[in-house]
Write a protein that binds this DNA or RNA. Structure first.
Length: 550
DNA sequence: GCCGGAGGCGCC
DNA sequence: AAAGGGCGCCTCCGGC
């Protein structure tokens, strides 16, 4: 293991360590000799934060096989102790271990340094100290706190690997054809308006909307649109598209069309293209594990919300293919596993789990089975979905009991965990209102508020156990695939979105890559759900364009 | 004029 | 098939 830290002047200092954290030799400046000596297959890096420490190494041509990311590990360990939002630097880890107040996080610490040998910026130590010693001690402390919990160890390893993958994916970028994107914009919005303003299609729709109402309406203003519908006799409480869809009025069609297109214009229009696409690659900043459930987030570009209409712009380079793989119906399968519901696990053997559910208890009605299952996992209580959940409850008492139990725990203000042991955050300051509303002398208004807040919390914990366990599985899947892809020249992970990933690879190795993706999914199933009969199949599809994958 | 929250919608 | 979970991002709006 190679501990790698920044000095106050920004230079990098490294210290070889054993896996037990014992020093081997002396710390010294990272130099070209170190880089030449690196064992690309096995070296494990120890550093404060992958997002900060890895980019300069990547720029120097280093590919980290594995790492121990102190911040990633600390976030998970802190969460299990009920502490969210505490600083996660090596110095903070040490301070807590020694009973001192943890130093505040500095914003500059979170920004990647530009180049390897011309680093500048803050570091944790005064100049005369060895910064790798702080890292080493933080590592030892975390190792001791993690203990011998195998599931937790798997989670930490997978999350560290995910951090590497996230940083690499941001640097590599998603193949993106500017010309195709521009053609889509031209087709749907018309030519780009000079100097801002509405594109022609949107301007025409705005006129149509005002004409349909018979008075001027600004479709960009929800307040205005709502008032307009009220004025013509439709007392809607919001202007969400599914609310408007239910109205019978000539303005409905242009309003809905406007909503759809203005979204494309503002979220993924010409400005987006200019800001985020460079050299036929869309470079987002991926933040692995940034969501409390363990899902990834992104900063900038909205990479996890690429609209379907633009997936035709995601095209493999000449001579390359995209291998697109998603885990089919992952969340109900995960529920079958974590709840140990053998009936649901048996159904998970089918390619289409919802069809299996439909045949089992919904008279073959697949749509009803799907709505019911989603309702069960999201805590839906009203409408058709809420009603259908009772069928599931009768049919799969073990699985439904599991999510119901998680909801009850949430309503009591308790914390729940993912299958590998990621903790959800404890209730926040609003829980005081729940306590007040549950007291004998509470007013009706206080009781109502308490019920609503407790219900919100219950739906959150109900969903957390499923969503976070699915994120556990996906992280192990991704980590395993990333390792196996090192054997395939030219193959790169370019996208990951909760339960779906894309590899960009030379055409001749596309088939082997698809096999590796399936193997990694099977390995993740065995590791995350040992002994379970559940199936978590993935469906790799080899395409030129992302849009052709589904 | 600035800024945080709300409204709304894209993805899973 | 309902409007239940998690996000990021944009615009509007209202309070200061």
């Amino acid at each position: 293991m190679l501990a790698c830290a920044r000095r106050p002047d920004g230079t990098l200092v490294v210290q070889q360590l054993t896996d037990d954290g014992d020093r081997v030799g002396a710390p010294h400046d990272l130099d070209q000799h170190d880089l030449d000596q690196l064992d690309p297959a096995g070296q494990r890096w120890l550093w404060a934060s992958t997002g900060v420490d890895y980019p300069p190494l990547m720029a120097a041509g280093i590919r980290a096989a594995r790492c121990h990311d102190v911040a990633v590990v600390e976030r998970i360990l802190l969460g299990r102790a009920g502490a969210f939002g505490e600083p996660t630097s090596p110095a903070a880890v040490l301070a807590r271990a020694q009973g001192r107040p943890a130093p505040a996080e500095r914003v500059a610490d979170l920004d990647p340094a530009p180049t390897l040998f011309e680093l500048s910026g803050p570091a944790d130590q005064p100049p005369d100290e060895d910064p790798t010693e702080t890292l080493r001690l933080a590592y030892l402390d975390q190792r001791a706190r993690a203990g011998r919990d195998g599931a937790l160890g798997l989670l930490l390893a997978a999350e560290c690997a995910s951090a590497l993958a996230a940083t690499e994916m941001g640097a590599v970028g998603l193949p993106w054809r500017r010309d195709i994107h521009l053609a889509v914009l031209a087709e749907l919005l018309g030519p780009r308006p000079v100097g801002g303003g509405r594109p022609p299609t949107l301007a025409a729709l705005a006129d149509e909307i005002s004409q349909a109402f018979g008075f001027p309406v600004n479709p960009d203003s929800a307040v205005d649109v709502r008032a307009a519908f009220r004025r013509v006799g439709f007392d809607i409480e919001s202007t969400r598209s599914w609310v408007i869809k239910a109205i019978d009025h000539p303005a409905v069609r242009p309003v809905l069309a406007y909503k759809e297109l203005v979204r494309l214009h503002t979220a993924n229009g010409w400005a987006w293209l200019e800001q985020w696409v460079r050299g036929n690659r869309f470079h987002a900043e991926y933040l692995s594990g940034a969501v409390v459930s363990g899902r990834w987030a992104t900063r900038g570009g909205g990479a996890l919300q690429i609209p379907r209409v633009l997936r035709q712009a995601v095209v493999a380079d000449p001579g390359y293919r995209l291998i697109v793989a998603d885990a089919a119906q992952l969340e109900p399968r995960v529920l079958a596993a974590i709840s140990a519901d053998l009936v649901l696990q048996a159904i998970s053997a089918e390619d289409d789990l919802y069809a299996g559910l439909a045949a089992d208890g919904f008279g073959g009605n697949r749509a009803a089975a799907k709505v019911a299952m989603l309702g069960a996992m999201y805590g839906q209580t009203t409408g058709e979905g809420g009603r259908l959940v009772s069928t599931l409850r009768a049919r799969y008492p073990q699985a439904m009991g599991y999510v119901d139990g998680a909801a009850r725990a949430g309503e009591r203000g308790e914390v729940v965990h993912s299958v590998l042991g990621r903790a959800c955050p404890p209730p926040g300051t609003s829980w005081e209102a729940v306590r007040i509303g549950r007291q004998q002398d509470a007013t009706p208004a206080e009781r109502t508020l308490a019920d609503r807040l407790a219900g919100d919390r219950g739906r959150f914990t109900r969903n957390f156990v499923v969503q976070a366990s699915a994120a556990d599985w996906a992280a192990v899947w991704l980590a395993g695939l990333r390792t196996s892809l090192t054997e395939v020249a030219g193959a790169e992970l370019v996208f990951f979105q909760h339960d779906e990933l894309i590899v960009h690879a030379p055409e001749p190795v596309a088939e082997p890559v698809a096999g590796l993706i399936e193997d990694a999914a099977d390995a993740a199933r065995r590791l995350v759900f040992p002994g379970s009969a559940v199936q978590t199949p993935v469906r790799p599809v080899i395409v030129d364009r992302y849009a052709d994958a589904k």
